[in-house]
Write a protein that binds this DNA or RNA. Structure first.
Length: 137
DNA sequence: GCCAACGTTGGC
DNA sequence: GCCAACGTTGGC
């Protein structure tokens, strides 16, 4: 089992929308590092759902419902997408400020590379953030 | 709305 | 292959 964090602007595609749809295609990634992370996702892997720009917080857990395949929104180039399904909203959103302030989360790519939209999370980091969100799976 | 950080492009 | 210019992302 691997863990991930994916970013989305909530006014473009928020967690509520994923819940409403039941399953969502994670497409539109046009960054090689992020794409390679998408390709490494396995069915059943868990992802934090982070709201960028508005909210600036991890708000929920989602699960990989379908492994990578060619992104149908890409007109050219070698891009991939996956499908995600909602698992559980956080009882309490964990803000970027809290993550930046936590001594055990300094290695998180969310802190170190603000522009990466799909990133791996270690199992320790995953449980730390889940606990901060007062959430159990 | 501004700007820092980062990635990509293209001239040389 | 280097690097300046440019575009985009995302926090503030």
């Amino acid at each position: 089992m691997n863990y991930w964090l994916v970013k989305s602007e909530p006014d473009v595609y928020g967690y509520d929308q994923l819940v409403a749809e039941g399953r969502g295609r994670w497409d539109g990634v046009r960054n090689y590092q992020a794409r390679n992370n998408l390709r490494a996702m396995k069915l059943g892997d868990l992802c934090f759902f982070y709201h960028s720009n508005i909210g600036l917080a991890v708000v929920a857990v989602a699960r990989v419902a379908k492994e990578h395949y060619p992104d149908p929104t890409a007109e050219k180039g070698d891009w991939s997408c996956v499908e995600l399904e909602p698992v559980k909203p956080f009882v309490r959103p964990v803000t970027l400020a809290e993550i930046k302030a936590h001594p055990d989360l300094q290695q998180l790519l969310l802190v170190r590379n603000a522009r990466l939209s799909v990133m791996p999370v270690s199992s320790d980091e995953f449980s730390t953030i889940l606990t901060m969100g007062e959430t159990q799976l």
